[in-house]
Computed example of a mutant assay.
Amino acid sequence: MKKIITSIAICLSGFASTAQVGAVAPNFTADDINGTSQDLYAHLAAGKVVIVDMYATWCGPCWSFHTGHYLEDIYAEFGPNGTNEVVIIGYEDAQNTSLDDMYGTGSNTLGDWVTGVSYTLIHGPVVLPAEYGTGYPTVSVICPSDKKIKYNLFNSGTLQQMKDDVQDVITQCSSVSISESPLSIELSIAPNPVTDITRITFDALSSENAVVNVYSISGELVLTSNYNVEVGINSIELDLNQVEAGTYLLKVETSSSVSNMTTLVKM
């Protein structure tokens, strides 16, 4: 009985609690329910607005928000099948729950939180920092350029107001994508994740020298490799044996063009 009362109290505190709008969102790295590593700052570095829905499977207001399909509607408009400007992460934050609870088969849940959801879901290995809120739910909208929380969508009221708030962050905060430049490099990396050696494939605009830079999430240069490339499609080999496991950002530059930062995962 004590556990149930405590859970209800924490959930109800979500009405008075809110994400710390204006605060810098601390980074977190965790595997999603499909086993793919998710790093908040990697998404932000790629110029994406990130929405973090912090909830608990036993929380009534969280369940009402979830079954309203607000985030699914937002993801359809702003996610990869829409404008591709937003990443959404549903982060189950409570430490007294299990993955079974997310699927609706556990003993500490109000239903199935997974079926019908197309955005990323994480059963959090740790509680998120206080900047994301001290009660459930909070739905933080994070700006890529300064990493600050701009809105808590749980307080927005209507779906249209939520979409307006997201669009405001996109307009005010999204980094200008290098791919909008006529001198951009479109590249692919395979395999990715990689254990030792991967290949980078891209279309060079001229015969020249190409520099591949690999950065840590914090922006530190980890590796630089130089290549002579020819006009047209090039496939170059990148040796990552000396790079520690983790999530990185890769960029290809030549004298006439540059690529977007692309996420690279070293296993």
Results as ranks from 00 to 15, higher is better:
Ala76Gln: 06
Tyr132Gln: 03
Gly116Ala: 11
Ser259Gly: 02
Ile185Tyr: 05
Leu205Glu: 09
Lys48Arg: 07
Gly111Gln: 01
Gly35Glu: 04
Asp93Gln: 09
Asp39Phe: 00
Ile4Thr: 13
Cys143Gly: 05
Asn226Glu: 15
Val21Pro: 01
Ser256Pro: 07
Leu249Thr: 00
Tyr136Ser: 04
Ile89Ala: 10
Phe65Tyr: 15
Asn241Glu: 15
Ile33Asn: 01
Thr18Gly: 12
Leu128Thr: 01
Met267Asn: 15
Tyr103Gln: 10
Leu159Glu: 09
Tyr41Ser: 07
Leu110Asn: 03
Tyr136Cys: 10
Glu237Cys: 13
Val176Met: 15
Val265Gln: 10
Phe15Tyr: 15
Tyr136Asn: 00
Ile233Asn: 14
Leu12Gln: 01
Thr195Cys: 02
Asn234Tyr: 05
Val52Pro: 00
Asp239Tyr: 11
Ser206Thr: 14
Asp32Ser: 10
Gly82Phe: 00
Thr83Leu: 06
Gln242Cys: 12
Ala9Ile: 13
Ser64Asn: 13
Thr109Lys: 11
Ser145Ile: 14
Val169Leu: 10
Asp146His: 11
Thr134Lys: 11
Ile149Pro: 00
Lys3Glu: 15
His66Asn: 10
Ser98Pro: 06
Gly111Lys: 05
Gly157Lys: 11
Thr57Asn: 02
Glu85Arg: 01
Ser218Leu: 14
Asn108Thr: 15
Val114Glu: 00
Gly90Ser: 08
His69Arg: 14
Ser257Met: 03
Glu253Arg: 11
Cys173Val: 10
Val50Lys: 09
Tyr215Arg: 04
Ala204Gly: 00
Ser218Cys: 04
Cys59Gln: 03
Pro129Val: 08
Ser107Asn: 15
Asn234Trp: 08
Ile233His: 06
Tyr55His: 11
Ser235Met: 12
Leu264Trp: 03
Gln167His: 06
Asp164Gln: 10
Val49Arg: 05
Gln172Asp: 12
Trp58Lys: 03
Ile149Ser: 02
Gly22Pro: 02
Leu240Arg: 07
Ser7Trp: 05
Gly246Glu: 06
Gln161Val: 12
Thr67Trp: 00
Asp112Met: 08
Val229Lys: 08
Ile185Asp: 08
Pro144Ser: 10
Cys62Asn: 02
Ser257His: 12
